[in-house]
Design a binder for these strands. Structure first.
Length: 800
RNA sequence: GGGCGAGUGGCGGAAUUGGUAUACGCGGCGGACUUAAAAUCCGCUGGUGGUAAUACACCUUGAGGGUUCAAGUCCCUCCUCGCCCACCA
């Protein structure tokens, strides 16, 4: 039988590797270090094919680096706090802790079945008190540096999760976790001042090796835009409105202003009798409905703008003209100052609004037809007094210059990035280490009192309210400052805080004195390659950079950028080319695939199916092809092999393959690396007397992809030491070069034949041979060539 | 609406970065082995024309145009799909 028993050999070697701690990383080793990181999973219950794809790709690379002689650190852990555990608790009457740790146990055994080269001694589980103690320490660190603060403000609220969400966690107006419509709710909450680092987070991107699209996403998220702040006085009042605009050059075309419904001035107007406003009731009504709208509803109304006149007028600072102030929810309180100057001729949104409410449209820039649509391009200014004749750039400079003399404008930069909202009104998370004292106010828990333990004996409420609020033993405490009775903060931290520093903890997982020793940090950081999905581009990957920056400034991190190199894996789709989902019925269970063909074949097929960063549909038939290949390798290595040295032909094939496979793995092009190994096997199998040495090289190159079968065969070939301790082979460039090359002969750019020539033949030599070819002769048909193009060792083109 | 990316056989995909398009694998067809099937092994496999069979020719990388001796690759116009962001002033 030309096959092998994958169940037997895979399990056997997994146990051996485990016992001998084969993949342990050595702290401070003299070899060059290599820190290879994957995004640790959430313990949802079982590994899915996407996890496998991510981890398999990373494992190929990790093993390759190990064979290249690096001291490789490849750790794994679990992001184990979070809502699903709590929801499962409420639904199935099981404690989140029990649910979580049961899942972790199961997933560890699944992970081991892949045969990955992890250092299991460094496992990090974020819901362990030994871990979240340091998450709390991180919070206190931020607090002490003035980077954590509490504030009552309108926030994204998921009514289904009963929880607030950070801006990064709202996707298209919906909750990133449960897809419910997000509403706005005013609530007391903790925030981290990520905005203090906006410029550092922006410029830091220039020095790291990340996919350009991910950098671009972060740049867009931070949303730096240059413009001007302009002051508008409100007539018959002491108030003025500041607006931010990127187009101060169009000021002469500003025919009205618009305030967000939440703008403080709107509240002032509504509450004060000072203002003579006829439609107070209407405004009240509008503000009320705007508040009730979900993010999604607001988005759906992009096309149909609504609004109401405030009854107030402002003065346009450039020409002192009286312009009306409107209220509309197309202006967002969260950006700029929650107020805009509306230039309908040159802004699409303002144009729509003006058309709907019959407001004047004044063209101040030539280039379009503003009666038909807003013109947002560049051009020559008109109707703009001292700006007339100027281009956009010049006009912007000039108008700021003029207005700043009267202190009515200044150049500013505005950002889209908001502070990170981190308090969660739920149980299964790290408690925020703050005590509220009636006398002393907000008091941080002393570091020596950490961790603030999450109590186990809690009662879950069907309303989803945090049980901590009703847990007296937890809540009631004494003030560390005055000793009087006080209450603990009952909010817990966003789990993204746990994951913002976990890569440090892997370096020193058992340290009880500090979250990570400086020496180990110095040795291991930064992460040399981080492989994970692109969906974290503006969440985890931004938060972690913020943490590293903030820690760096206090001397607690040796790097400003934690992840030197980042790569994304693609998404695995179902056979029907659709996202895998239970409702579509196209979900593939990795465990079952492993049972059928073995982990080596599943891993390797993941490498083979296409470009790693592209993913693609899972073809169950395709995995069979890989298994066939492994069977052929098994057959080849178990057959009669000669003791003699490899022949020159074998050497040639070998060296060529070593080069190709090594270069491809380095670039994460696993698909072509594997295809080169297949070519190798095809070519070698055709030979008669195969040298054992040749097969051994094959096994070594195959080892990162299929660690079990190669280890087994290696042993069968008589080796005492395991194959995974072997070095990646070096190739001899001389062996790759051929004395003879195939030169393609074209006539008028069309291939007519190809001829075998000695390497580095001259044009004359090649031409001489080419012209004798009957097919070439036919097309040249005795004519004198107009031109001859010759690229040595490649191509000869005869132009007639 | 904005940003990024991609379109190559029946399918997943290769292509030394401008130099033989379709490597490798799946699937299909034919053959060997077998009482038979599976497995395995060996051939063939982009399309059209042509031939008894070879030769061979022409067409073909989403569509159209251009640059070049030479274009899947570079430039312009358009179409389609995917992902991310989005009333961001």
């Amino acid at each position: 039988m030309k096959t092998y028993d994958h169940n037997k050999i895979e399990k056997k070697w997994q146990e051996v590797w485990d016992k001998t701690k084969l993949y342990g990383a050595k702290d401070g080793d003299k070899r060059k270090k290599f820190y290879s990181l994957v995004m640790y999973p959430y313990p949802s219950g079982a590994l899915h094919l996407g996890h496998w794809y991510n981890f398999a790709g990373a494992d190929f690379y990790t093993r390759f680096k190990r064979m290249q002689g690096f001291n490789v650190l490849s750790p794994i852990g679990f992001d184990s706090f979070g809502l699903p555990a709590e929801n499962a608790a409420i639904k199935n009457n099981i404690h989140p802790k029990e649910w979580t740790y049961k899942n972790i146990k199961n997933m560890i055994s699944q992970l081991k079945s892949m045969g990955p080269a992890y250092d299991w001694d460094r496992m990090v589980i974020t819901s362990d008190p030994e871990y979240y103690r340091w998450t709390q320490w991180m919070f206190l660190y931020m607090y002490k540096r003035g980077l954590a603060y509490k504030k009552k403000q309108v926030a994204n609220w998921c009514p289904s999760c009963n929880n607030v969400l950070a801006n990064e966690q709202v996707l298209g107006g919906k909750c990133w976790r449960c897809d419910s419509d997000v509403i706005q709710k005013e609530i007391d909450q903790w925030l981290l001042k990520i905005t203090d680092y906006k410029d550092k987070l922006l410029t830091g991107l220039d020095d790291i090796d990340w996919p350009e699209r991910t950098k671009e996403m972060q740049r867009n998220w931070i949303g730096r835009s240059e413009g001007a702040e302009i002051k508008f006085e409100i007539r018959n009042s002491k108030f003025e409105i500041n607006v931010f605009t990127t187009r101060p050059d169009t000021l002469f075309g500003a025919t009205f202003m618009v305030l967000a419904p939440e703008h403080p001035l709107v509240l002032e107007v509504l509450s004060s009798k000072k203002y003579k406003i006829q439609n107070r009731k209407e405004i009240k009504e509008y503000v009320k409905t705007a508040k009730k709208k979900t993010e999604l509803q607001r988005m759906e109304e992009i096309k149909e703008k609504t609004g109401v006149f405030s009854g107030l007028y402002a003065t346009n600072p450039v020409n002192n003209k009286k312009i009306p102030i409107w209220i509309s929810d197309y202006v967002l309180m969260s950006y700029g100052h929650g107020a805009i100057m509306a230039v309908p001729a040159h802004d699409e949104r303002d144009w729509d609004f003006a058309k709907k409410y019959n407001l004047p449209i004044i063209e101040v820039l030539k280039g379009g037809n503003v009666e038909k649509e807003a013109y947002t391009g560049d051009g020559v200014h008109i109707n703009s007094e001292y700006l007339d004749g100027l281009s956009k750039e010049d006009a912007i400079k000039r108008v700021i210059e003029v207005l700043s003399k009267e202190k009515k404008a200044k150049k500013t930069i505005n950002y889209r990035l908001r502070d990170w909202l981190i308090s969660r009104q739920r149980y299964w998370g790290a408690p925020i280490p703050i005590i509220h004292c009636p006398k002393c106010g907000e008091v941080p828990v002393p570091e020596s009192d950490l961790p603030v333990n999450l109590p186990d004996d809690v009662q879950f409420r069907p309303t989803g309210e945090s049980p901590l609020k009703y847990h007296d033993d937890f809540r009631k405490t004494t003030c560390p400052k005055c000793g009087g009775s006080a209450e603990r903060e009952t909010d817990t931290m966003d789990t993204f805080l746990c994951s913002s520093w976990y890569f440090f903890r892997y370096l020193d997982p058992n340290n009880e004195q500090e979250f990570c020793s400086k020496n180990l940090m110095k040795y291991w950081m930064p992460v040399d390659i981080y492989i994970g999905g692109p969906e974290h581009a503006v969440m985890h990957l931004l938060y972690s950079r913020f943490f590293a920056q903030a820690l760096y400034e206090g001397g607690f991190s040796n790097v400003k950028e934690p992840f030197y190199k980042l790569r994304h894996q693609g998404m695995i789709l179902g056979e029907d080319n659709q996202k895998m989902s239970k409702s579509r019925g196209n979900v593939v269970d990795p465990d079952e695939e492993v049972k059928k063909v073995g982990a080596d074949a599943v891993r390797m097929f993941m490498g083979f199916m296409g470009p790693f960063d592209q993913g693609g549909p899972w073809n169950p038939k395709g995995v069979v092809g890989i298994r066939r290949f492994l069977d052929r390798v098994w057959f080849l290595a178990s057959g009669d092999l000669s003791d003699s040295k490899p022949t020159t032909l074998e050497e040639k094939i070998m060296n060529k393959t070593i080069k190709k496979v090594g270069e491809d793995i380095e670039e994460l092009k696993f698909n072509t690396a594997i295809s080169a190994l297949m070519v190798f096997v095809n070519e070698v199998s055709a030979l008669d007397n195969i040298s054992q040495k040749t097969v051994e090289y094959l096994l070594i190159m195959l080892a990162p992809f299929a660690p079990h079968i190669t280890e087994e065969l290696w042993q069968k070939l008589g080796h005492k030491e395991g194959i995974h301790l072997e070095s990646w082979p070096k190739y001899d460039p001389k062996m790759i070069e051929d004395d003879e090359v195939i030169v393609v002969v074209q006539v008028n750019g069309r291939v007519r034949t190809n001829i075998k020539m000695n390497k580095n033949s001259t044009q004359e030599q090649v031409l001489g041979v080419a012209l004798k070819d009957k097919n070439v002769k036919k097309f040249v048909s005795g004519q004198e060539p107009k031109k001859i193009v010759y690229i040595q060792n490649k191509i000869l083109n005869i132009v007639i």
